[in-house]
């Protein structure tokens, strides 16, 4: 039951994009087409889960025993950067098809604040390893949901008449605001 609560809260109630404001850059930049946002979501789901597991292990088995928790920012970002490189190299060798689909999005992910954000949130919430994995998978599912809905809306922008000054980023932000309002309706769920 508790796991179901974590899943629903992470996907709908505290959606990482629309209520936590993590990972907005690719949200505004990449989400012009449904196909690119599917690729980005896949890459994020993959990296976020692996990154959360490795940072959780490093925090609990390396930083805590030595009493150097203040090193978490430095060690987490280095682990994530190295991990993204490694995932890229392994994918290229073992699964060229998946690499083709995710390839271009992988380097962008190092500086995606959602990855580091979730790694830090899991520590802050004091989750154990299984809860952390459930949390990161469902958070990235929520990210994917918001990104794909938003891309679908933005594809319609090409047909709509938008006032000159609002074209581009402003209308994207205002649309995201309305989408966030819709997601607020889930607040009663948990």
């Amino acid at each position: 039951m508790e796991y179901i609560m974590i899943i629903i809260t992470a996907i709908f109630v505290n959606n990482i994009l629309l209520s936590q404001f993590l990972g907005i850059c690719p949200f505004i930049g990449v989400s012009n087409k449904i196909s690119t946002s599917l690729g980005m979501s896949g890459a994020i789901m993959f990296v976020m889960t692996i990154a959360t597991i490795s940072t959780w292990l490093i925090y609990n088995y390396l930083l805590v025993p030595f009493g150097i928790e203040f090193m978490q920012t430095i060690s987490f970002i280095l682990v994530i950067a190295a991990l993204v490189q490694m995932v890229e190299i392994i994918l290229k060798k073992t699964s060229p098809a998946l690499y083709q689909a995710l390839g271009v999005y992988l380097p962008l992910i190092t500086t995606n604040c959602a990855i580091l954000g979730v790694a830090l949130l899991v520590i802050q919430k004091d989750y154990d390893l299984i809860r952390s994995v459930v949390f990161s998978v469902s958070t990235s599912a929520g990210y994917a949901l918001a990104l794909i809905i938003f891309a679908g809306i933005r594809e319609q922008f090409e047909l709509a008449e938008i006032p000159q000054g609002l074209k581009g980023v402003p209308i994207a932000l205002i649309t995201a605001g309305i989408l966030a309002m819709a997601f607020m309706g889930f607040a009663g769920l948990a």
Binding site: L18, F21, V169, I171, L173, I174, A176, G177, M184
Partner: peptide, 15 residues
């Protein structure tokens, strides 16, 4: 709340 952030930033950039 969250939606207000998006909307205010959107209008400020438009301005």
């Amino acid at each position: 709340l969250a939606p207000g952030g998006f909307i205010v930033l959107g209008y400020v950039i438009a301005l």
